[in-house]
Design a protein around this nucleic acid. Structure first.
Lengths: 215, 215, 215, 215
DNA sequence: GATGAATGAGCTTTCATTCAT
DNA sequence: AATGAATGAAAGCTCATTCAT
């Protein structure tokens, strides 16, 4: 999902300082939130002097933007490749749901920041990361529109609204996980999220209604 | 949507400074976000002296808590009365969706704060307002579970997950509105949100799949 | 030592509000110190609205000044009557020491404020209460000078210096009591202070040297 | 009088900002008192940005504590070496009196703060500086007790009480100087204080009584 | 007299950012 | 590149004092 540049120094492989700081920032933002996070916290987490932060980023805000841009991009590519695949819409929906939920399972910090700081940061500096987040919506919306065009999905629903519903629904399921509102048996996360991904796709495809044939 | 103190209307019953400040805080929080909002901004917006804020609230955080507690409760009651009604689950779902979307249409500032500051504040001071927000989930989850028990909704989906999906989906639709990602023709908001509410209920009930009978 | 004007209202004898507040202020200043004491604390202790304070005093500082002037005066008169008595200097010294120590025993709060706020307040608003405190020194100094003139006390010591030594010594003995550095058996305070008064007079009269005759 | 960091003298060893601030704080506290002193005053006096204060001290109170701890210790050592000397008690008493009075003459600001803020601060954060101030008493008390044991001082006086008297007496003589109640001819301070030190020792040793042999 | 809501200057403290080394 | 001392704007909060009732 992301590229960690191996650097070429003499001692043990060491991701370059910039990425070190980005990862540190993710941890800190995830722990305390963007606003409460101090630049010195990030530097401390990264094990560097905090003055050095300003060699790599012009200010604190740019750190957040960089997280969105650089960490989000790998994820977006994965979503796009799902959307472009030659499979049924239902499989695509389930795959995207699974991708999102697994991303959380594997990199909870990243997703915490992405999820919990999205709206907030969208006010801080919309253009940059909203472009990134917005692209996720757009991909999903396009995926749904294509499903409609191919006759797999009903055409009487605005794909934009459906996309927001889908993404928002996933978002809140993850938020609930982040906030530990959903009580998941430790060790069973993978199976749990797979089942949830299936449920999500199922709901979005076939709905909650009990008997669809006769309704 | 909500109870609101029967105020400002009949007589110039002093709209009681506390509520004045709460409303001012809602505006300011909606405009700049909780963290970026200065106490002086709130005082200024309310047209009162800065120090007076601290006669009514012990600190800035308590203002946010009070907003959640006092403005959220009327909404919750409305949701509960929908959940308790003797109608079909699909009507309830549509009614809740319409309630939420209309709340936004009528009191966008309130909902902005509720929506945009929920996760953030959930980290600031969980117990109080998460209790309020959490109750919304619980009502919806209960509503869905009862739908399952009555055979109206399929029983193979975890109602908690479905509730998060539903609430989260609505949340993001509103967020999109708030952030003006959905471009709504001015003057047509009411009709638009009604249609969206219908779409939401439709998706959650019958899904996006094109031909359900033959699937 | 002080005048409590009985007022003429219909209900139970009630010291007039002014004295009520002065006493309340003494308690609060003794407990928290002048600077840390809030006007509202004093009002609260007196059981009145804090706005009322400003009907009786122009500001917080005047409260302190009034305490010094009004509570200190009775004490000064007592000191003066000792100084003017037709007894030996040594008896006068012991009597003053006993007066001071007993004042503390009987009205520790008053003395706490007088003692602990003297220097501090002397910087706040010298003229008023330094006049009062200064008068104490002056009386003692005069008393010592008269002792010298009558040949009871040695003439080679500056009476002003001796007066400061005497008053300062008493001051610190009381301070030590206030701060509970001297551990006095409860119930024995009266006897203890009497003994201390005697010691003080003894030291000032005859000194600490073991054998004076042969020195 | 005191150790003081061997500073400012030989080379321009950077007088280390911390001590710069401590000295500035002493001046400001001496001028306006601890409570009235603003952190910005201290920073201004030290010629630094006030934010820097918080790099070296966690808050204003810690500055005062540090003054007591770091500036007081040299003085205490000097007192202790006097107490431990193999001389007569009367010489020790006079030496301590001279030390205290000279300390004031040479470093009036230090002593002003020590003297004028002692009681006040003892309520702010007792443990730390009271330990320091208390040690002064204890040394004097021990000195007097040893004098009693060696038969140089009379044994019928509680050494603790005598120590308080002695220290308190000196304290007030200095306070009087600080407050300029004793009018000392400029240029004659050294002689003056030497004479006062002698008087103090004389009073404490032999008392004020005129004819001791026949009394 | 009596109340306490209202005012706002002023304080301590924080922390993003700069800069000399 | 790297450090962390230095800066100072800005914020939250306190509380003496005023004032309408």
């Amino acid at each position: 999902m992301t590229s960690v540049q191996a650097d070429h120094s003499e001692r043990p492989v060491r991701p370059d300082k910039r990425n070190l700081m980005l990862d540190a920032a993710i941890h800190v933002f995830a722990r305390t939130g963007y606003h409460a996070a101090r630049v010195s916290d990030i530097a401390c987490e990264a094990g560097i002097a905090y003055g050095l932060v300003y060699h790599y980023f012009t200010n604190k805000e740019e750190i957040l933007n960089s997280i969105f841009e650089e960490r989000w991009s790998g994820f977006l590519e994965a979503v796009e490749s799902i959307a472009d695949a030659k499979t049924f819409s239902r499989d695509k929906l389930e795959a995207v749901a699974a991708l999102v939920l697994n991303a959380y399972r594997l990199r909870p910090e990243w997703v915490k920041v992405l999820v919990l700081e999205i709206q907030r940061s969208s006010r801080i500096a919309e253009p940059d990361q909203m472009r990134a987040v917005g692209r996720f919506f757009q991909i999903v919306a396009r995926m749904l529109r294509e499903g409609q065009e191919q006759g797999e999905l009903r055409g009487d629903i605005d794909p934009a609204v459906a996309a927001y519903l889908f993404v928002g629904g996933l978002d809140l399921v993850i938020t609930a996980s982040v906030l530990e509102e959903l009580h998941i048996e430790p060790g069973t996360e993978e199976a749990y999220y797979q089942k949830v991904a299936h449920s999500v796709a199922e709901i979005f495809l076939n709905g909650l209604a009990a008997e669809r044939g006769t309704e």
